[in-house]
Design a protein around this nucleic acid. Structure first.
Length: 414
RNA sequence: GUGGCUGUAGCUCAGUCGGUUAGAGCGCUAGAUUGUGGAUCUAGAGGUCGGGGGUUCAAUUCCCCUCAGCCACCCCA
């Protein structure tokens, strides 16, 4: 075993896995386009404060998971841990406020310093959509429907559950937050150390604690639904009615929380039990406070991100390997003609590979290993007649054909 | 970041109650078959037994540390 290895949690993607990734991202890109989300890309790194300001100083991602370094100019740079912050930065710095509503699709690598597991890597890949500038619930519905449609296209929708919650608007949330903190202050002694720690920074997260002492306290805690104001209730009711109207099944999960202040109203996750501890395959929500928090004009937004590796695992079965036509030159004088023929057929749209060396037997073995659908045997005597022998690899049948007719003959094997 | 399990050939794994040259299947290379693949047979290459340290006359085997993988917690994609 070599001491030379990839960085922990980072993996090479060989053609087979690359095909699986492409299968997921191509399907997603295609479906997203039908919803009007066109692909864009932000840089893989940003100034660190792009993420610090948007993700909040208290989130796990910022406090312990960012790949941050100082570049040669002395600037603090961070490899993006997610894409929404970059889109928001781009919205502000490129003056996109003039062009709302904006609908973007993206696909690419993200980086988080986490402990790797199956379905959880340090360099991983996400697809996602963002819809910026529409405050109405139709935006949420379109975004969620697009996610569901992609899962359906990939054939995994029935392996997932759409979990849904509302975080209410800013007023509702801050009122509830105050009430919750008041209540929890009164039970400080019964709370776990971690929850006491969270009380200041991220009290809503305590609701999700699995600690037994915490759970006892939480049972009697004030209910968020009692603090939802009328606007928030209406928004959520419309969202639910809209999903039902579209025939999109969902389950309410009141414990689905987002700890950061700029999240509001809609929070959702498509989750699965098929991937062990890594349940979320697509997760998103509404972030009306994000762009203003970064210094832009108050602009609503809603979006989601999905993990390509997780989606790919969920898809399961291996994708079919492409089958080339392999040219087998026989005899020293046929090599140049073989290369010419390869070029001609490639121009005609065929996937052509060559057997490079060895005797006939070796070359046929190579054709077989490449999974060829057909082999073109190019011998000296055939070439004198401008012909080649085509062998159908599955049946073993052979026929002679003029070189000029090869595209038509091969078309039958496609 | 915490806890548990695991680490022997490219892959999947046996094995060594501490003792000479560490095994199998698959895969790979070559030949049987110098103009014909998949099957079969034969031969061959390939391992500092994850890495470092300790105990011992002797460590792949026992102990410690470390690294990596998997699982759970956590978090999420």
């Amino acid at each position: 075993m070599s001491t030379l290895r990839p960085v922990r949690g980072a993996h090479d993607l060989f053609p087979e896995q690359m095909r699986e990734h492409r299968y997921v991202s191509d399907a997603a890109r295609g479906v997203a386009a039908l919803y009007g989300f066109d692909e864009m890309a932000t840089p893989i790194f940003e100034y660190s404060n792009v993420f610090k300001r948007t993700l909040g100083d208290t989130s796990d991602i910022v406090t312990k998971e960012m790949y941050t370094f100082t570049d040669k100019g002395g600037d603090e740079i961070t490899l993006r841990p997610e894409n929404t912050a970059g889109v928001a930065r781009s919205f502000i710095s490129e003056g996109l406020a003039q062009s709302t509503p904006l609908k973007f699709f993206y696909s690419g690598p993200m980086f988080r310093y986490e402990r790797p597991q199956k379905g959880r890597l340090r360099q991983f890949h996400q697809i996602g959509v963002e819809l910026v500038g529409v405050p109405a619930v139709q935006a949420d519905l379109e975004v969620i429907a697009c996610g569901a449609r992609i899962l359906d296209e990939l054939g995994v929708l029935d392996k997932t559950v759409l979990e849904l919650n509302t975080l209410g608007d800013t007023d509702s949330r801050s009122e509830y937050r105050d009430a919750l903190v008041d209540y929890l202050q009164g039970h400080l002694g019964s709370l776990s150390a971690e929850s006491r720690d969270r009380l200041e920074r991220n009290p809503l997260r305590i609701l999700d604690s699995k600690d037994e002492g915490d759970r006892a306290v939480i049972t009697a805690a004030p209910l968020f639904t009692d603090y939802l104001n009328e606007d928030s209730q209406t928004f959520f009711a419309e969202l639910r009615a809209g999903l039902e109207n579209l025939g999109i099944a969902y389950e309410l999960n009141p414990r689905l929380v987002r700890g950061l202040d700029y999240y509001c109203h809609t929070a959702f996750e498509f989750t699965t039990t098929a991937l062990g501890a890594q349940g979320a395959v697509i997760a998103g929500g509404r972030y009306d406070g994000l762009i203003s928090m970064m210094g832009g004009a108050q602009t609503p937004g809603v979006g989601w991100a999905g993990g390509i590796e997780r989606l790919s695992m969920l898809c399961g079965g291996a994708l079919p390997t492409p089958r080339p036509v392999v040219i087998v030159p026989v005899g020293a004088t046929t090599r140049d003609r073989a290369l010419q023929l390869a070029e001609t057929l490639r121009r005609a749209g065929f996937r052509i590979d060559l057997s490079y060396s060895g005797n006939m037997s070796k070359r046929m073995k190579r054709a077989n290993k490449l999974g060829a659908c057909a082999a073109i045997l190019l011998g000296e005597d055939e070439l004198l007649r401008d012909e080649a022998t085509i062998r159908h690899m599955d049946s073993g049948e052979q026929e002679a054909a003029p070189l000029a007719s090869l595209p038509e003959v091969l078309a039958r094997y496609k």
